[in-house]
Design a protein around this nucleic acid. Sequence first.
DNA 1: CGTCATCCATGCCCCCAACGTATCGGTCCG
DNA 2: CGGACCGATACGTTGGGGGCATGGATGACG
Lengths: 283, 283
Amino acid sequence: MDDVETRELRYFVAVAEELHFGRAADRLGIAQPALSRTVLRLERRLGVSLLERTSRSARLTVAGEVLLGEARIVLDAVGAATRRTRRAGAARGRLVLVLKPGGDAGLLPRILADYGADPDALEVELLFSIGERAAMIRDGRADVGLLHHPQNDLSGLDAEQLHTEERVVALAEDHPLAAKDVLYLADLAGEPQPHWPEAAPGTAANGPLVQDVGQLLQLVAVGRAVALVTESAARRPFQGVVYRPVPDAPPTTTVVAWSSGSRSRQVAAFVASAVRCAAAASS
Amino acid sequence: MDDVETRELRYFVAVAEELHFGRAADRLGIAQPALSRTVLRLERRLGVSLLERTSRSARLTVAGEVLLGEARIVLDAVGAATRRTRRAGAARGRLVLVLKPGGDAGLLPRILADYGADPDALEVELLFSIGERAAMIRDGRADVGLLHHPQNDLSGLDAEQLHTEERVVALAEDHPLAAKDVLYLADLAGEPQPHWPEAAPGTAANGPLVQDVGQLLQLVAVGRAVALVTESAARRPFQGVVYRPVPDAPPTTTVVAWSSGSRSRQVAAFVASAVRCAAAASS
DNA sequence: CGTCATCCATGCCCCCAACGTATCGGTCCG
DNA sequence: CGGACCGATACGTTGGGGGCATGGATGACG
């Protein structure tokens, strides 16, 4: 009755994304009839119609939309399972920590020192990523990460708060708003604000897409954008950029996050180090 | 290279749980050699040893432990996918709400009325469960639930807070501690406290296992247990049971929770109703 | 110390199901 | 009306998953 295989889900996802059996079959490296049959069998087994086939194209039904979302979750979980298992099997594993360059609120050196003091600590591999940190933890490419709340989507992850900072706005020094000592969100409403690729839900920005902090500050310096950044980032001076406090911007919390359900002792030890260091730093 | 099928994961989980190929094969309804081959192929594909076979028994390797946890996540996700897809396909679906009897903090009637006022609201099916509510949401048996923080493990779920209540302790009226007007956790330290099957991590209780509130109050009335309950539960009188405030017990927050990644408009509408009602009730 | 029991792996065979090729039926377009 | 396009169907082939029988290793036991 039940017995859905990941192969069937992979096939269905391909069709659901292409909305075209031929192209999907190409992408999967199989012939179109095999794909048709597999999807039909999946529909029969579930007792549900997933696609409305017109002879010109295909559209997802409501149930198909649901299954597309669920299947992606399953396939991510399968990928995470293989990656994590392989890594656990590799001799004397490493702990992969993902973070955004400069996104450690200055805590990283202390955390690494503290964790490394544990005699059976693993080697910590640093993995830098701008826009995919949460996804990298979810899918097993990283074991643990430094993320920011509420900028990152933490669903599916467990997290401990490390540090909360007010946000300041970076402006070109000759920007008209730089004349004021304090700015409010209302002042910035019309300004182009760059956005990161890390698509947090509901944060539509109107400015250019940036890939790293240097690029962002460059844009700010030439007056093409204004950007909300954290206090700690503002301690790094940049030619032509000035910072002004924004009291009503929601503060940013740096968190250490890991995959929910990770029972790894190593991850727990690293998190404990991070929390301890953050507590020590704030006192 | 990659291509792990759910069947292989099901087989591996059976072996990992039984630590015995023969029994696992029985449980799966297949013969032992087929199971051996499938697990071996899985190990070869992952490039990792999952089990240490002694000729007397089998033990999990570290990688095997990891895969066991990951595989359970995958299989839960597959089950959830099929259930949710089937439900979405069933004509004009229902919204399944799971809660503990009496665990609604008195909000349920208002929430149902408010949600039902939406012209395209679905029929809400109430599903009562004591110890598995979070799991039922995770695996798709329910769409949304009323849970309690920190008693329930909310990992893998999204939640909105509805209502926070202090906790009180239920005592037999002739219990020695009932003489005091206010009790503290220290006073209760030696008393047998019943526990629910809902295994929140790290809450080891020393009392009997109870399955419902009536049973719990019965145990309290006969002096076999004392129990921390919420204020709202304490409004229901029970023969021979008295309640005393416990100011230092952590308060209980009633939350409405749903599966992370549910993009369902219906779930969102229900959550909005719940939040709205809770806000109205507390003002 | 030899025998037996237990447990997992392997060899052999069968058969199902997943695949590919060819084709059909329906729809849109020129 | 013919051709192009798209998904479903027919049919033959084959790889692999499964069962049965057996092998090889190890611990138990008399």
